[in-house]
Simulated assay, not measured.
Amino acid sequence: MIDNLFLCVGAQKAGTTWLHSQLENHEDISFSDVKEVHYFNTIHNGSILLTRRKVEHLERLIKNNKHSLERYFSDLSSGKKVDAGIDRLLSPVDDEWYISLFSNKTGKYAADFSPEYALIGKEGFSNVKRISENQKIIYMMRDPISRAISAIKYYYKMHNTNISEVPIESMRALAQSNLILNMSMYDITIKELRSCFNQDQVLYMFYENVMANKQESIDTVCNFLDISKVSIPEAQLSRRVNVTEDFDIDGDIISLLREKLANTYVYMKQEFKLPEKWYNDI
């Protein structure tokens, strides 16, 4: 079991990569070897991201370092201690596998920043509690429509697609997918988090406020985790990550998102003091 597990559960394109880059060298936090493990969404949502990453890693080993694989199987057959990294790569993905990712880590917290965990539901969050003694969760949010638009742009960027050439119907379908629409439905995730965790276990943060008060936001996170504060150079605080190119999204897509996310805006206005930059006419 993990003693103290620190998760950042989203939302995608809401500053999670930026926050990771500010905290990745903190002595009290031991991050997974990759920023986004995708374990819980693999188990509870059927995501293929973790499997794809393991396959890609294995392909690189076969191509560039097949001798390490040969040595692994030789050691395995002779009962010798095997390479832990390759063992995790070839082992079944289950709770013990996830716990092993942090077995040799130091620091107060084991940390995993996977935004897609926002969609794992009560069953997934219950799994988090089963494999860790204590949990701290940060849920980062951004104006739902702005976040969705940024995610759409990022999707086409990662697929090397010229967004200006995408048929409107294809973009409408993407806008209504789990990755885009459901990730902006903060009300659903918040209700699930509140049903599974105590109030002091979850910190809700808004991208717009974080970007306007970067060092203060880092201090807030450190207070939340009860770890030492760090003074981060302005150049690092201001460094942009995962930037997507600017492109005007068709008004029909914005109208669609506005309709689908109306209930989310109503809920968020009732529960939080929202940043001024959020859409105010919803």
Rank of each mutant, 00 (worst) to 15 (best):
R147K: 07
V82P: 13
I29N: 00
T244V: 15
L119T: 05
V82T: 15
A262R: 03
R60K: 11
D246K: 15
I152D: 01
K229W: 09
V221G: 02
V210S: 05
R130Y: 08
N25V: 09
V34H: 01
S132Y: 02
D143G: 05
F197E: 00
C196N: 10
T161W: 00
K54Y: 04
D33Q: 11
K13Q: 08
K63F: 06
E123S: 14
S217N: 06
L23Y: 00
K13T: 01
K105S: 07
H20W: 09
K66N: 14
N198R: 09
S78C: 13
R88T: 00
K157E: 02
S77Y: 15
K136Q: 04
R88S: 06
L225F: 01
K63M: 04
H44T: 11
I137G: 06
T244G: 03
N64Q: 14
D200E: 15
K136P: 03
Y265G: 01
E208C: 08
V9I: 15
E123N: 15
S255A: 14
R194M: 11
D3Q: 14
I2R: 02
Y156G: 02
S47W: 11
I149F: 12
N41E: 15
E165S: 15
S231N: 13
L58R: 05
V37M: 01
Y117F: 14
S150Q: 05
S114R: 09
C222E: 08
S146I: 07
N25R: 12
Y207R: 01
M185D: 06
E36V: 09
S255H: 07
E56F: 14
Q236Y: 11
G79A: 09
S146H: 08
K81L: 13
T244P: 07
I282P: 05
D250W: 02
D94F: 13
I188F: 10
E208V: 09
D200R: 05
N25Y: 10
G251A: 04
C196G: 05
I190N: 02
S100F: 01
